[in-house]
Every structure is written in C-alpha cells, then in structure tokens.
C-alpha cells in the first residue's frame, strides 16, 4: 500500500460530498505536526492488516440480545 498523500484526501473532500475541511487540517492528517492527530497513516496500515484477515461469514455486531 502506498503512503497516504494529501491529494487523495483533498480529492475525497472535493469530489465525495464531504464537509469542506481546511487544507491545513488535511495536511495534519497526512503529515502530523501539531500532535493533535497522531498516526493516521499508522491507523491505515493497521486497517490494511485487518483487511487481510478472513472473517468468514461473521456479520457486523448488532444489538446485544438477551439469551
């Protein structure tokens, strides 16, 4: 998986009907400087590991049912 770049997130913002996040906020996600969000790239890397785990037919969690 390639490293996340700012253009990708700007594309989501501009072409996916997203809220108009500031350029600075998008930069912070890609290249954290302020220490507000740390490790978005790390989060994506971990999600990529999870993507490769076969959950078979496990459904998403729903309400907890009394048994």
């Amino acid at each position: 998986m390639k490293k996340l770049d700012k253009q990708t997130l700007m594309g989501i913002r501009d072409q996916f009907g997203s809220y108009a996040w500031d350029d600075a906020e998008i930069s912070e996600l890609v290249d954290p400087q302020l220490g507000i969000i740390t490790g978005f790239q790390e989060l994506l890397d971990q999600l990529e590991v999870l993507r490769k785990i076969d959950l078979e037919a496990m459904p998403p969690a729903g309400d907890i049912i009394t048994k």
């Binding site: 997130l9 989501i12 913002r13 997203s18 809220y19 996040w21 906020e25 998008i26 912070e28 996600l29 302020l34 507000i36 969000i37 978005f40 989060l43 999600l47």
Partner: peptide, 13 residues
Amino acid sequence: QDFRAGLALGQCL
C-alpha cells in the same frame, strides 16, 4: 481544533 481533526479523520475512513 482537536475534535475537528478527529472528525476529519472520520471523513477519510
């Protein structure tokens, strides 16, 4: 600023 950053992250998942 910190909550906005968290919400922006939510937008990109």
